[in-house]
């Protein structure tokens, strides 16, 4: 009886979180996995971990932090396993460039072109830099990113500075061309 009510409560809390953060989870999965089928598995794995976690979530931190940590931790484990299999080489924020593009960034409906370029860049980033980039794109502050990743405030500040420069570059290049 108690167990049944507990499961029902867990289902409700999970469903609320999935509705609120489902889009962010999907975006995060896109940042960690380029392959569509594997990404679907990753999203399901994150949702499964989230559902289980509501068995013991008692407001230890904000719900957003909780959801993002679970999602990133599952995705990081996925990435570590994939890297062991694929041996792909990844780079830091100071080494990657946004891929070149000759289209008009503003004209593209819904900014799809810039998101595609962004994803191609994210997929080449080393895990720690990828975490900062993805959390920054979700509007988290530097302090929240430091708290969520465990990175020192200085390391986060340096990375956010690089992320901003990286994101502004395509627009600067377009300005030069115009």
């Amino acid at each position: 009886m108690g167990q049944g009510r507990g499961n029902q409560d867990r289902d409700t809390r999970y469903a609320d979180a999935a509705r609120s953060y489902g889009a962010a989870i999907e975006r995060l999965a896109r940042g960690y996995e380029a392959d569509a089928e594997l990404r679907r598995d990753l999203v399901q794995e994150i949702h499964a971990a989230l559902w289980r976690s509501y068995g013991y979530f008692e407001g230890q931190c904000s719900e957003r932090s909780w959801v993002y940590r679970i999602a990133h931790n599952v995705a990081v484990s996925h990435l570590i396993t994939r890297r062991r299999l694929k041996r792909e080489s990844l780079a830091g924020l100071d080494e990657v460039e946004m891929l070149p593009d000759d289209g008009d960034l503003e004209e593209e409906a819904g900014g799809r072109r810039i998101v595609e370029r962004l994803l191609a860049t994210i997929h080449r980033l080393a895990p720690a830099d990828r975490q900062v980039m993805l959390l920054y794109l979700e509007d988290l502050s530097a302090a929240e990113i430091a708290d969520m990743t465990g990175m020192s405030a200085g390391a986060v500040a340096v990375r956010i500075h690089r992320v901003k420069a990286l994101l502004a570059k395509p627009y600067a290049e377009q300005g030069d061309l115009a």
């Binding site: 289902d11 999970y14 469903a15 999935a18 509705r19 489902g22 889009a23 989870i25 999907e26 975006r27 896109r30 999203v43 399901q44 949702h47 499964a48 559902w51 819904g110 900014g111 799809r112 810039i114 998101v115 962004l118 920054y136 794109l137 979700e138 509007d139 992320v163 901003k164 994101l167 502004a168 395509p170 627009y171 600067a172």
Partner: peptide, 26 residues
């Protein structure tokens, strides 16, 4: 700013996700 525009495009890229049903999640 330019980075704000990219952030906006990023957040709009998945606005309506397909959520797995509860049985699949369990």
């Amino acid at each position: 700013s330019d980075s704000d525009r990219v952030r906006q495009a990023w957040q709009a890229s998945v606005a309506d996700p397909v959520l797995p049903d509860l049985a699949t999640v369990r």
